Amino acid sequence: MSQLDEIGDADGWRCWLCDEPVDPDMPSNDPRGASVDTRITKARVKKMKKDKTPIPPERLAHKGCNTGKGAVDPVIVWPDHLIVVDPAPIIATAERLERKGGREAMARCPTDGDAQAAAQWLIDRLSRLCPGLSVKSKIDRSGGQFLVSLYV
């Protein structure tokens, strides 16, 4: 079994960046083909080794998603169907929750329904982004809006 197959099986053959299925039979040079992403830049890996910080595991990504992010830290985009204000960066938040636990404010929403939808999407997305991290959501009414938070 190849490294790509092992990583693909571990990630359920879903791209960790766009969360869409990856076809293992696609040619490797096709933008929808499978590739291995190291998740972080080489400079950050060097700093993590120096600081003796655990290095995140490699993840499965579409060739196009992996190439598109280039040598910069990846960003997971919030979907357009969610109505959120001041959305938090998902990967950085997930890393902090894994490392320190606690609670993180993720976004503000104009209605309770929007907040419920955002919280549900976040829990679902993080279950695949960080399979070992068990997070819960909390929605607080504040100043005429609804604050969506995640906590461990």
Rank of each mutant, 00 (worst) to 15 (best):
S2P: 04
S2N: 10
L4C: 02
D5H: 08
E6H: 04
I7Y: 04
G8P: 02
G8K: 04
G8W: 10
A10C: 01
A10I: 01
D11Y: 01
G12S: 04
G12N: 08
G12Y: 10
W13M: 07
R14H: 13
W16E: 00
L17P: 00
L17Q: 03
D19N: 11
E20N: 09
V22S: 02
D23S: 12
P24T: 11
P24C: 09
D25N: 09
M26W: 02
M26G: 01
P27V: 05
P27E: 06
S28E: 14
S28V: 10
N29H: 13
D30H: 15
R32M: 11
R32F: 02
A34I: 03
S35A: 15
S35K: 06
V36G: 00
R39Y: 08
T41H: 00
A43G: 15
R44N: 03
R44H: 01
R44W: 03
V45Y: 02
K46L: 07
K47S: 05
M48P: 00
K49R: 15
K49Y: 04
K52G: 06
K52I: 01
K52E: 14
P54I: 02
P54C: 08
P54S: 13
P54W: 01
P56V: 08
P57N: 10
P57Q: 11
R59A: 10
R59Q: 02
R59H: 07
L60W: 10
L60S: 09
A61T: 06
H62P: 09
H62Q: 06
K63I: 05
G64N: 06
C65L: 06
N66M: 08
T67W: 01
G68W: 02
K69L: 08
G70P: 01
A71Q: 10
A71G: 08
D73T: 12
P74M: 02
V75S: 13
V77A: 13
W78K: 04
L82Y: 06
L82K: 07
V84P: 08
V85W: 05
D86C: 01
P87G: 06
A88G: 11
P89L: 11
I90Y: 06
I90Q: 14
I91R: 11
I91Y: 07
E95C: 02
L97I: 14
E98F: 01
R99T: 14
R99P: 00
K100E: 11
K100N: 08
G102A: 02
R103V: 12
R103E: 12
R103M: 12
A105H: 10
M106Y: 13
M106K: 10
M106H: 04
A107S: 15
T111N: 04
G113K: 15
D114H: 13
A117N: 07
A118W: 06
A118T: 13
A119N: 04
Q120P: 00
W121M: 10
W121Q: 06
I123C: 05
S127Q: 12
S127V: 05
L129F: 14
C130K: 12
P131V: 07
P131D: 09
G132L: 03
K136V: 08
S137A: 15
S137W: 04
I139Q: 05
D140P: 00
D140R: 15
R141A: 15
S142Y: 07
S142L: 07
S142H: 07
G143Q: 15
G144R: 11
Q145C: 06
L147D: 13
V148Q: 11
L150H: 07
Y151R: 09
V152S: 09
